[in-house]
Design a protein around this nucleic acid. Structure first.
Length: 314
RNA sequence: GCCUCUGUAGCUCAGUUGGUAGAGCAGUGGACUGAAAAUCCACGUGUCGUUGGUUCGAUUCCGACCGGAGGCA
């Protein structure tokens, strides 16, 4: 039986961070963040990363451990996060994965490995150039030759995945279909107890997202964004794909007003929450804790505790 | 008060030379295996402002009225 760990997830603004810390205190746990943007330094406000005070002494890992100039991926994250989890286990503590990046959570919990290739790699750059210059069609043609299964599965508009499928082929000589089929047979790396937070009503979720965005602005999001820009961070940095940053860059450059940026961030955040839900909903192992109106953490902690104890976590 | 423009999906608007209408955005659902806060897919009935008239038939033409914008006084 693989080691037992806990995963706390849910759409943005649902209270993952708070519940994670409560559980860590109750079960002698340590937090391992699974958030594709909190991983970067200097992005505390806009990513709602926990501050030192909020952590309440609970050890946190994988938060603000990368420079915003770096390009992290699910694979790179797993490479760093798994040793973290192992270390926590070896010290007899409970690893609690907390985050809303579904793929990153799965990258740690499932035994799946990623196929070859990398973001900054030569093959990727070459394929990207081809794509920019001649469009998807040539890539799709080649993919149909070498990996008809993927070519059939992928929508012709899904350029990113078509590119990646070809990248895997060129890098490894193996198709991504074959890799995926093989890796799916591997047993899970951890025996995870999945806890998911969500709102009963979309309107409540929306209201909370709106409130949170307003607070981020009050807390200095515009200044945080300006500081990142002044540090010479390139525009195409992965870190700047974060919601809240690209919109406030536009405001900093005078292309939109600040209130337009605020509305845009709210909009993008609720669309993001919807995508998170659609990823999470297909996980049958996930125990949902539903907020009926306000976020009642005492109740959530009690429910979670029962679930964890029922699953043999102590 | 007069003149002109305008009133069509939650929003912005297109359109029907008269046969009851369609885009973008929003929204909802879904996908997702080295960018994932990214990327991609699917889903569009609404008294066509109200009310009379003309017509086999009006959202479309004509009149009145109501709302909005602008101009002239």
């Amino acid at each position: 039986m693989p080691p037992k760990i806990v995963c706390v997830t849910g759409p943005t603004a649902c209270g993952k961070t708070t519940l994670g810390i409560l559980l860590a205190k109750q079960f002698h746990g340590e937090i391992v963040s699974a958030d594709s943007m909190q991983i970067y330094r200097g992005m505390t406000i806009g990513t709602a990363a926990p501050t030192l005070a909020e952590m309440q002494g609970v050890p946190h890992h994988m938060v603000a451990v990368a420079e915003p100039t770096e390009q992290w991926s699910a694979a790179r994250y797993a490479e760093a996060a798994i040793p973290c989890v192992e270390d926590i286990l070896s010290r007899g503590k409970l690893p609690i994965l907390v985050g809303g990046t579904g793929l990153w959570l799965d990258a740690v919990v499932s035994g799946h490995g990623f196929a070859g290739g990398s973001a900054g790699g030569a093959v990727r750059r070459e394929l990207q150039r081809l794509l920019d210059q001649r469009g998807v069609e040539p890539l799709l043609q080649e993919l149909r030759q070498v990996d008809p299964e993927s070519a059939e599965r992928l929508h012709p508009s899904d350029e990113k995945r078509i590119l990646r499928a070809l990248e895997v082929w060129r890098e490894t000589g193996k198709t991504i279909s074959a890799h995926n089929a093989e890796t799916k047979l591997l047993p899970p790396r951890y025996d995870a107890v999945w806890l998911g937070l969500r709102f009963e009503n979309r309107e409540d979720q929306r209201a909370l997202i709106d409130l949170r965005v307003d607070r981020m602005v009050e807390a200095g999001l515009p200044a945080e964004v300006r500081a990142l820009l002044q540090s010479g961070l390139p525009r195409d940095a992965t870190a700047l794909q974060a919601i809240g940053y690209k919109e406030f860059i536009a405001a900093a450059e005078g292309r939109v007003t600040e209130s337009e940026a605020v509305e845009e961030v709210k909009l993008r955040s609720r669309q993001y929450a919807k995508r998170q839900l659609s990823w999470l909903r297909r996980n049958p192992a996930l125990h949902w804790i539903t907020w009926e109106k306000d976020r009642d953490f005492a109740r959530a902690l009690q429910i979670s505790t029962e679930i964890l104890q029922g699953a043999g976590v102590s």
